[in-house]
Design a protein around this nucleic acid. Structure first.
Length: 406
DNA sequence: CCTCCACTGGAAACCTAGGCTC
DNA sequence: GAGCCTAGGTTTCCAGTGGAGG
């Protein structure tokens, strides 16, 4: 770095960027309003759900156990935000009344295993559980023990609860719905389950289902008009007046509406579009930015998913990438084995690869339907459904794998 | 209509890492 | 420190199957 500090062309470029950023007024007033985890102070079109939800939980302020609640509706229909909004308001009251109530929030898809879910719950109660070694029931009873010892009442929000049940079983859920009797001392746990999957109930043991869904609430998708109103509302808080064009709002709403009325997606689009516009130095956000944002979000998601895949998942993708077109499990497996061997990695069995392929299918990275080729047997036909360039870029990130991607 | 391929996917056994008990 | 226990990932085993070609 000999020329560091010297006034060269590079410096001029940077000066220009920095100056532009300092001097130009940002198009944003408050970009936090567009963040994924933002809880607005008013929520549109969900008055019924909010009041129903609020009245179910309200008894907690008098020290009574609220019913367990089950919320379901597709992604971006406001389940999480309503749950967080109401519990936040409730928490303000709890503080005023000086009650010993904790609100815990877990996304079971992010926690990914039953055990990690318990570790996460424990962390929110200030107890640390070892990352392995304990049985589920031991981990759970340590959590219960803590609640009993400190006489804490808890409301636990289990977001994307369908994930954990589909991949494991519902034993710990059963423990949580059942434990109130043993927690005595007047302590209780109320469970708020949130599911994106309407058919999820079929996976649950009837005992758990009846315990979990003492109350049920359904969140319908937002209509285009509703999405537009939500966006307009957020725009007022997030951007300077007049920055976002009306046609951009319309496009944003209709894009999100075509994905089953997903408000989260609509707001994401808006945020990314705003960031793109700002980076370009544009002082308006128009339809062009929305379209670009839509593409960029998809790419980022894919990139992130692939980058965080376990080694063998990546290896399989590398093998899919190397295949010219659709490829069946058998051929894919032999390509995968030779790639693995060339890296000095012991390949997994075909049975396992078949399973991993199904997981990649669920993640939306590949399409792997089972097709029958008649006389030539039955197998998965694997096809990449995300841009090759994104996959290859994400795989490059892995040192080991980048060495075989020519 | 029957055969038979090349797997699929369920079930169970096995492996590993790490905490717990004594 | 030996011996035991469990969760989560993997392997082993295998019955089951959609449809092209006979």
């Amino acid at each position: 770095m000999e020329n560091m500090g010297a006034a060269g062309p590079n410096n001029d470029i940077l000066d220009e960027i920095f100056n532009r950023t300092i001097n130009s007024k940002s198009i944003f007033l408050n970009r936090d309003v567009l963040r994924n985890d933002y809880i607005p102070d008013h929520i549109l079109f969900r008055d019924d759900q909010i009041s129903q939800f609020g009245s179910i939980l309200a008894p907690i302020l008098r020290g009574n156990k609220p019913s367990n609640i089950f919320l379901y509706g597709k992604t971006g229909t406001g389940k999480t935000v309503v749950a967080r909004y109401v519990t936040k308001k409730l928490y303000e009251r709890v503080l005023k009344l000086n009650l010993n109530i904790k609100f815990l929030y877990i996304n079971t898809r992010l926690a990914s295993t039953q055990y990690k879910m318990l570790v996460e719950l424990g962390a929110q109660l200030d107890i640390s559980l070892p990352f392995t070694g304990l049985s589920l029931s031991e981990a759970a009873s340590r959590i219960f023990e803590k609640m009993k010892r400190d006489s804490i009442n808890t409301i636990i929000i289990l977001d994307e609860i369908d994930y954990i049940v589909k991949n494991y079983d519902d034993n710990i859920l059963y423990e949580f719905t059942r434990v109130n009797n043993e927690l005595l001392n007047g302590n209780f746990i109320s469970i708020i389950g949130i599911s994106n999957d309407l058919k999820f109930k079929e996976y649950l043991d009837p005992r758990v289902l009846s315990g979990l869904s003492e109350e049920e609430m359904v969140f319908p998708p937002y209509t285009v008009d509703e999405l537009e109103a939500i966006l307009t509302d957020r725009i007022r808080a997030a951007f300077r007046p007049g920055v976002v064009s009306e046609s951009a709002v319309k496009l944003c709403a209709s894009l999100a509406a075509s994905e089953h009325g997903d408000a989260r997606r609509a707001v994401d689009l808006l945020r990314v579009a705003g960031e793109l516009a700002e980076r370009e130095g544009s002082d308006v956000v128009d339809t062009d930015h929305i379209t670009k944002a839509s593409r960029s979000i998809e790419r980022d998601r894919t990139y992130e998913v692939i980058r965080s895949l376990p080694l063998h998942g990546k290896l399989i993708l590398a093998a899919v990438l190397a295949a010219p077109e659709d490829i069946n499990t058998g051929r894919l497996y032999s390509n995968y084995t030779s790639m693995a061997r060339s890296l000095g990695i012991e390949p997994l069995t075909q049975r396992r690869i078949s399973g991993i392929l199904s997981e990649l299918d669920v993640l939306g990275v590949v399409n792997a339907p089972v097709v029958s080729n008649g006389r030539f047997g039955r197998s998965k036909r694997v096809k990449l459904v995300v841009p090759r360039e994104v996959v290859s870029r994400a795989l490059q990130e892995d040192e080991l794998i980048s060495s075989i991607l020519k």
